[in-house]
Design a protein around this nucleic acid. Structure first.
Length: 410
RNA sequence: CGGGGCGUCGUAUACCGGUAGUACGCAUGGUUUGGGACCAUGUAGAUUGGGUUCGAUUCCCAACGCCCCGACCA
């Protein structure tokens, strides 16, 4: 992609937002704030989010099938589970005269989808032969946070992967639940958060009376506090006993995922039973599993940056290579840069080609701010070769485009 | 949901009860080209609704919006 074709305007203004991720993502043209806690993912940011969500998708496919549920739902579903009082719930109604005159029942703009998936599955009347199974989706969730903050870490509208599993027994649910933990850790490893992400016990909140488990990434700007020990055993502060607090290490952390053993809470509310082998009807056990994909994007920036900008892990970077020709009016250099661009594209490498007629400082500054893993420069100094620099390193290396392609595609 | 702050070009800001200024950005032309260079010209602004006043962007009230602290929360 050519820089000039991407809707991208970076800024070198020194304005600071309330968090590092908001500051760098806005300055770098990844996101734009539409209102408090609501952001547009601009082309560059959308690419990062897609990289993250594709990793999530690949891992989730091991334990469930992807689907897509609606954003709107009838209020009646929430009345059935007694969650109309969920205080972050958004309601919507038609604004035309006819709707207002009829005093239509409001729709719920879904904050989560237990109320949706349970009746859908129920309608299909799966028997014990069909269980267990899991289904998931990746979509935008809406929660009316009274105080959105910290950029992508807490919004009123955010991206989330939610998975729901259904089981004949508590044991089956627990087995699947353990499997989900492994799959989740695969996701966090692949996006670059493996070293600092812990599974901790937490309260079930609005969903369940039992413990749930949270995936917490140690992060200075995180809103949570966790306690972990050397064996990797962890607790959220909200449920940690005094004994844990005194013997474990405390860290600030951000919750990037969670899993809830719901048991029969929702299936009972919808009177959902399955037919067992012996002909008896028994309640279905259910669990739900979330990963905040947009929050992961924010956490990555919080953890991986320096004074010049973002440092994306290779797996989620919007592009692999930032290519800049320092050509000015020199057509030879520009043609060389064009040639390198084509060669990289042909080799299947995601490259952002800074084809603007701006000063070298502008290009270097953006390369650092945008945090793309490799910087490639073509100039009169490079004599037909290319200059290659890792975002994480100071020094650069001169090599041929072919050598570089070989190195990156390996 | 409690407490507080602030609303001026796209952004950041200044002044003012009587013609709203500057910088960045953006546009055009020109000089530059290895760490965000420069010159010239141009572009664009008082959140909304009431009130006070001869006159309100300025003072008062309200709404709305944004931001900050706390509580809550994926």
């Amino acid at each position: 992609m050519r820089y000039s074709q991407l809707l991208l305007k970076t800024t070198k203004e020194s304005k600071q937002f309330d968090s590092i991720n908001a500051t760098l993502l806005i300055k770098g043209g990844f996101i734009d704030q539409t209102m408090a806690g609501v952001y547009t993912f601009l082309p560059l940011g959308w690419r990062v989010l897609n990289k993250i969500e594709n990793i999530v998708r690949e891992e989730m496919d091991a334990i469930g099938a992807e689907m897509l549920m609606p954003t709107l739902s009838p209020r009646s579903l929430w009345e059935q589970t007694n969650r109309t009082g969920f205080d972050v719930l958004f309601e919507a109604r038609g604004a035309n005269k006819a709707s207002l005159a009829k005093n239509d029942t409001a729709f719920i703009i879904n904050p989560t989808h237990e109320e949706l998936i349970t009746p859908i599955v129920q309608k299909m009347k799966p028997s014990y032969k069909d269980l267990p199974f899991g289904v998931y989706q990746i979509q935008t969730k809406f929660r009316n946070e009274e105080r959105p903050k910290s950029g992508l870490l807490r919004g009123r509208e955010f991206r989330m992967k939610d998975l729901y599993s259904f089981h004949v027994s508590l044991e089956s649910m627990q087995e699947y639940y353990e499997k989900a933990k492994e799959v989740y850790m695969n996701v966090f490893r692949r996006v670059g958060l493996g070293d600092d992400t812990y599974i901790v016990r937490a309260s079930g909140g609005d969903f369940t009376k039992d413990f749930s488990h949270e995936f917490q990434t140690v992060c200075e700007s995180g809103e949570d506090t966790i306690y972990v020990n050397d064996e990797g055993d962890g607790w959220n502060k909200e449920v940690a006993t005094e004994e844990v607090q005194s013997s474990y290490t405390q860290h600030p952390a951000s919750e990037v995922g969670n899993i809830f053993p719901l048991g029969t809470k929702f299936t009972k509310a919808f009177n959902y039973h399955f037919r067992h082998e012996d002909g008896q009807e028994k309640p279905v056990y259910m669990a739900s599993y979330g990963i905040g994909t947009s929050r992961i994007m924010g956490v990555l920036v919080e953890k991986f940056h320096d004074e010049r900008g973002i440092i994306w892990p290779d797996s989620v970077a919007p592009y692999t290579v930032y290519l800049a020709g320092l050509n000015g009016d020199d057509e030879t250099i520009r043609n060389q840069a064009d040639g390198v661009y084509k060669a990289l594209q042909k080799a299947g490498i995601d490259v952002l080609y800074d084809d603007r007629n701006v000063s070298p400082g502008d290009k270097f500054g953006d390369a650092d701010l945008l945090g793309i893993p490799w910087r490639v420069v073509v100039s009169k100094k490079t004599g037909g070769q290319i200059e290659v620099k890792r975002r994480t390193e100071q020094d650069n290396t001169l090599m041929s485009a072919e050598e570089f392609i070989k190195q990156v595609t390996n």
